[in-house]
Amino acid sequence: MLKNNIEKIRKERGISQEQLAEELMVSRQTISSLENGRYNPSILLAFKIATYFKLLIEDIFIYEEE
């Protein structure tokens, strides 16, 4: 199972879902689905998110054995 801290990090930095979506060139619904854990990103999008926040992928995404 893949969890993530996108919502927490985004809110800490005062960025809206729309702004993040705009920066990553994805739809706002994608950001919403990622934050709710309904959709797991591709490795490419995960890297894009990590690069945007200037963090490591492991700082944002947490893999948990089911």
Partner: peptide
């Protein structure tokens, strides 16, 4: 349009 066409969740 670019976002609609390239959004990976849309493709998924």
């Amino acid at each position: 349009i670019i976002i609609e066409n390239n959004d990976e969740r849309n493709k998924f």
